[in-house]
Amino acid sequence: MKEIQIRLSGTGGQGLQLSAKMLAESLIQEGCQIAQSQSYEPTSRGGLSRADLVIGDEIPDYPLVTNLSALLIMDQLAAHASTDLIQPGGLVITDSKRVEDPPKGDFNLHALPLTETALKLGSARVANIIALGAMITLRDICKPAALESAVRRNAPRAFLELNIEALKTGFEMATKLS
């Protein structure tokens, strides 16, 4: 397969690192090898946070992202931090509520009601899961079933059903677009 590079960005506490972990787990189930890196600030909540994945048949020579196939922006704070790295025609998903001024350029931008929908489902904390569902539907990254089993393994038990519902909502949200 051709190398795919993904970045999930936003602020600390939005569940981006966990989302990347779940995506990485589903990818190794499909026989890929990944390099997952992170960037965060010395605060547990707030501050710019990003989780990156480089996916291929084998571990890449350089494990950090240089050319993004897909980018998720969950907060205005992260809106313009990665614009230079997006490949032409790349996928960019933003949270329509939290990102008022999205980046502009030669890429496919989708402003999706991630936080709004999550709130309707019951908690803003599953916005990241909706985003994951939408992202793998819009850009063929991994099979939905693999991601669903990764979410089942990693989601807090008390909120498991909510997370699964959020994931499916993400799939549907993207299907409607495409």
């Binding site: 990944i34 890196s37 571990i59």
Partner: peptide, 9 residues
């Protein structure tokens, strides 16, 4: 730090 926090398969 990059290698310390890097996750690889």
């Amino acid at each position: 730090e990059v290698l310390g926090h890097l996750v690889e398969t």
